[in-house]
Design a binder for these strands. Structure first.
Lengths: 146, 146
DNA sequence: TATCAAAATGCGACCAGCACGCAATAGCGT
DNA sequence: ACGCTATTGCGTGCTGGTCGCATTTTGATA
């Protein structure tokens, strides 16, 4: 199985030549234990419950470093702040423009489109970094006119 | 053919009950005559070549109003500022994460995916508002490893 | 286990992109 | 031409994030 415990992730840090600090360990803990698509701000709040003096810029810089090491990935689910998750959980996102709900897209949903873009335009799709927007089933039901 | 002259767009403004001001006319002119995916900032610059005292917030408010009237559409081509174009030119975008180049996606590229999302998840795709990211043919060729 | 260079942190200033409140101005129906 | 009201200019404020710098911490080495 892919690494999903904090200790395993910390080991990845050391392998990458990065030092292991309190803030860094807590960011990883928040990513492993917390909600599924936290923003940097939400991670900061989580980190501060255990280490109140951690600064926002530290969280930003750690997320950047963790991403450079391939431990985490960020993505954009529409307007507003980026969200983060472990690289082992990479997946596409469908986001409802009405209610903001985020659906994790089935693996194969992008396949036909990726194949078409590649064949016809030579364009290599990376559909994970930015979400695809739309209207979810519930909201489509509720307000079909709007 | 769909309205594409400034006069026709101005007429749409009047029909919608909005007043026609210098700034508004110039924003429309810039959209008709300028480059294909201008940001609000770029439109401001264009407007100011003819009316130097137009304020940035005026351009933002006008774009908002024009969008409300269905005359223009904005979309997000990745990080950074939103881009605008006439509503008659609606189309999806493929944006290269490496060089930033924007490709206007063929009409039918999203079809299979939209159909799949609808059938399997009840999710109604609106793939025009946010671009789909990836790597263009040129950059894929240049740096296949990165 | 003490030392010490390099890495990481805290802190604040700063940035882009945009929204907003308010008084002054300008469109446009009459 | 008048007057109502939409629109503008201007400044201020917001979110999300970056950066420079002095101080602290890490962890390899002795």
């Amino acid at each position: 199985m892919a690494p999903t415990t904090v200790d395993e992730l910390v080991a990845q840090l050391r392998e990458g030549g990065s030092r292991v600090t309190t803030a860094r360990r807590l960011v990883l803990t928040a990513l492993v234990q917390g909600a599924s698509h936290p923003t940097a701000e939400e991670l900061l709040v989580a980190v501060r419950t255990l280490a109140p003096d951690v600064h926002a810029s530290t969280v930003y810089r750690n997320l950047e470093e963790l991403e450079r090491l391939g431990v985490v990935i960020h993505n954009h689910l529409g307007h507003g702040a980026a969200t983060y998750h472990l690289a082992t959980e990479a997946h596409g996102h469908l986001v409802c423009e009405v209610c903001g709900d985020t659906i994790e897209a089935p693996e194969d949903l992008f396949e036909a489109m990726a194949e078409g873009a590649k064949r016809r335009l030579g364009f290599e799709l990376r559909p994970y970094h930015f979400a695809v927007l739309g209207v979810c089933a519930v909201c489509a039901q509720a307000g079909p006119g709007s």
